[in-house]
């Protein structure tokens, strides 16, 4: 089975969020970039597990500029066989999806794995768009995935429970918690990653369907109102009369 895992570069979960250029750009100064957690912990690791069980290959794909290479090498260190970087700026989900769908179709991938969303733009968009462009099924928020022959068996999170789904390959999956356990690359993996192939390809022609005009930060809380632990009644009064929340 040919497996394609789409990964994205994201700021570390503890990164300070600030903006530059008149609040139009994310301030990357001093920010450490990581593989987007859902892409790495779940999509990539489950892809590797399926390859280990059924044979085949795992390719990681990222759309981005040369500063994306370190996170691609990390994915190779965790165990992907080879990597592709589509050399383009990533400002719009539909643009990115067109790049991925075109590559996946041309190269006959049967299973395309993505994370459920990136932790920067929180779009939850690219995977579903790729599926539509490839004209194949899409299952979002997948918490379990197995493949036997050309059939995938899937559990998907829904409100308060799970949906059990059967689908034909090829398929696009967005991965959520529960699909796999994160793996830490070992020294051998890190050494091997240096010599694994990373192919850089040019993007296809497409335009941006959306663009970010500006960013802002939420207003800081005005301060916590403390209530004495011996006077819990007062908290209930405040929640009822002041906050009108109960």
């Amino acid at each position: 089975m040919k497996i394609l895992v789409c990964i994205s570069k994201a700021p570390d979960t503890t990164a300070k969020i600030a903006f530059t250029d008149g609040d139009t750009k994310f301030d990357e100064n001093g920010v450490q970039f990581i593989v987007n957690p859902y892409d790495e912990w779940y999509a990539l690791v489950r892809g590797l597990e399926l390859k280990e069980a059924n044979g085949g290959s795992v390719t990681v794909l990222s759309v981005g500029r040369v500063d994306t290479d370190p996170i691609i090498r990390k994915a190779l260190a965790i165990g992907a066989d080879d990597a592709v970087r589509i050399d383009a700026d990533t400002n719009d989900a539909l643009y990115v999806a067109k790049q991925i769908a075109n590559y996946a179709k041309e190269n006959g991938y049967e299973l395309v794995l993505c994370g459920k969303e990136t932790i920067d733009y929180n779009g939850s968009q690219v995977a579903g768009m790729v599926a539509e462009l490839m004209e194949v099924p899409y299952v979002s928020l997948t918490s379990k995935l197995d493949v036997a022959g050309s059939t995938a068996t899937i559990e998907r999170d829904v409100e308060g429970g799970v949906e059990l789904i059967e689908a034909n390959l090829p398929i696009v999956i967005s991965s959520s918690k529960g699909m796999a356990e994160a793996r830490i690359p070992n020294m051998r993996g890190i050494m091997a990653a240096r010599s694994k192939p990373l192919t850089v390809v040019a993007p296809i022609e497409a335009s941006n369907a959306t663009s970010v005009k500006n960013f802002s930060l939420p207003a800081a809380k005005t301060g916590c109102k403390y209530v004495d632990a011996d006077n819990v009644q007062e908290l209930v009064n405040l929640l009822h009369n002041e906050a009108k929340a109960i």
């Binding site: 969020i17 920067d120 929180n122 369907a209 959306t210 970010v212 005009k213 500006n214 960013f215």
Partner: peptide, 12 residues
């Protein structure tokens, strides 16, 4: 950024 900021996005 997982609720840590807001963005205004234009649809083209």
């Amino acid at each position: 950024f997982s609720g840590k900021a807001f963005a205004e996005v234009e649809v083209n």
